[in-house]
Amino acid sequence: MNLKKNWWKIIAVSLIIYTITAGFLGKVPRLPILHETIRNLYFHVTMWFGMMIILLISLVYSIKYLSSQKQEHDIIASEAANAGILLGCLGITTGMIWAKFTWGAYWVNDPKLNGAAVTLLIYFAYLILRGSIEEEQKRAKVSAVYNIFAYVLLLVFLMIWPRMNGVDSLHPGNGGNPAFSSYDLDKNMRWVFYPAIIGWTLIGVWMMTLKVRIRKIQQQLLNN
């Protein structure tokens, strides 16, 4: 392996090894209802953070495509969307399991949860849109424009709406509930939480770049 090109993959793997080890053995606040499940912060919450960062990459490359019309940018945008959606699906399923054992149900009618579901549906629509246009340049252009709308809607449904006045939410960090960062022992948790975000995001980026490279090879084979 070329170290100059792949150093960040080593960082990604080390960060996740650290997350798994420190995430299970480190000190966490003792809270009723949550008990040890508070450790899900390092795994469930980081999926969503990773998703948002990777979808932001997708957005950036969509905008780049619109100004450059380079096919490479379209490939990166679509594969970043794929990787982001994967992390989002993992986030929503892990969230459901967590909800079942803390709130008592897999799904509760909560703005944060419904917002997350709507966001995923918006991105599923992106995939369907891509799949339904045959002509390459048209597909790239239409989906790039859609991607911009999609990210704006993501911000609205994940970040703004659940925090609005009058919207009540069970989810930590929303509807007047404290996020985990405000708990007593937050210092210990931050030391795992932030590296975990970077680690999972980099793993997602790694998977994304693999698919981008495969797609480029495919393209070259088609052109020859």
Partner: peptide, 16 residues
């Protein structure tokens, strides 16, 4: 597994 795929893709890139 990821490293394996990575290596294989690198090889294909070289070949092409």
């Amino acid at each position: 597994y990821l490293i394996n795929i990575d290596k294989k893709v690198s090889k294909l890139e070289k070949e092409i």
